[in-house]
Simulated scan of single mutants.
Amino acid sequence: MRSIAYAILIGLIGAAMLHIVLVLGLPRFSAEDAYSRVLGLFEMDSFFPLTRAPGTTGLSDDDPFLRVAVCGFSVAGGPVRFSAGGDVPFWSFAVYDSTSNEVFSMNDATAVQRKLDVIAATPRQLTELRKLPSDALGAAILVEMRDPEGYAVVRAMAPTQSFEENARDFLAKASCETFRAEN
């Protein structure tokens, strides 16, 4: 009986210590999530190319065959349009919310004419966008953002040195801007 009580006491003390460590350590881990790191780039509403060496945010482009750029954005002030095009063998695109959950992804094989054209918006903004004439949106894919803030990642493949310039050009021309419909 005494050993059972001792085991329970040790278990409770261990659980309390673990709880204290987790509670005290949580702010450190929550400040280092991907969204916070993207915001640390100070580049809202434009794609920021990542480098091989991790910068001050800890974000880096560590794949030898892909060039990567990220864009932090908010749809609170209006829908955001992502676009890019160019001559690369492969590209991919993903939208994440502020908790780093993937909301949408696609690549060149699923895009119209291999061009990136996506508009992210709140449900209410999407309702308004759908009322616009079809030529105002073009071939844009509409993506619903339940969370008004997020970030987008675009990757361009450069399998050999000869594709390097095209991949960097693709990322340099990629845009992440508030969408304004011309009436």
Rank of each mutant, 00 (worst) to 15 (best):
L24Y: 13
L26W: 15
L26G: 01
P27F: 06
P27Y: 08
P27R: 09
R28E: 12
R28N: 12
F29V: 14
A31I: 00
A31H: 09
E32K: 12
S36G: 13
S36V: 02
G40W: 07
G40T: 08
G40Y: 09
L41S: 06
F42E: 14
F42L: 05
E43P: 01
E43K: 12
E43Q: 11
M44F: 09
M44A: 13
D45H: 14
S46V: 04
F47S: 09
F47V: 10
F47K: 09
F48W: 10
F48H: 15
P49F: 08
L50F: 10
T51R: 12
R52K: 10
P54Q: 01
G55Y: 03
T57W: 07
T57D: 07
G58N: 07
L59D: 09
S60A: 15
S60V: 01
D61T: 02
D62V: 01
D63C: 03
F65S: 08
L66R: 07
R67G: 03
A69E: 06
A69K: 09
V70L: 14
F73Y: 15
S74Y: 00
V75S: 11
P79L: 08
P79Y: 04
P79H: 05
P79I: 05
R81S: 06
R81P: 04
F82T: 07
A84G: 10
V88Q: 07
V88T: 11
V88L: 05
P89N: 12
P89R: 12
P89I: 13
F90N: 10
F90S: 11
W91N: 04
S92M: 10
S92R: 14
F93T: 02
A94G: 11
V95K: 03
Y96M: 12
D97T: 05
D97C: 03
S100A: 15
S100G: 02
S100I: 04
N101F: 09
E102Q: 15
V103G: 03
V103A: 02
V103Y: 03
F104S: 03
M106G: 00
A109K: 13
A109E: 13
T110I: 00
A111K: 03
A111Y: 01
A111V: 02
Q113A: 13
R114I: 01
R114S: 13
D117M: 07
V118H: 01
I119R: 04
A120D: 05
A120N: 05
A121S: 10
T122V: 06
T122R: 12
P123L: 09
R124C: 00
R124E: 15
R124W: 00
L126S: 05
T127H: 05
T127I: 06
T127R: 11
R130I: 02
K131R: 13
L132S: 06
L132P: 02
L132N: 04
P133S: 15
D135T: 12
D135N: 12
A136Q: 13
L137R: 11
V143S: 06
E144I: 05
R146A: 11
R146Y: 02
R146N: 11
D147Y: 00
P148C: 09
G150F: 11
Y151W: 15
Y151A: 08
A152W: 04
R155S: 14
A156P: 08
A156Y: 10
P159T: 05
Q161F: 06
F163A: 14
F163D: 15
E164S: 14
E164R: 12
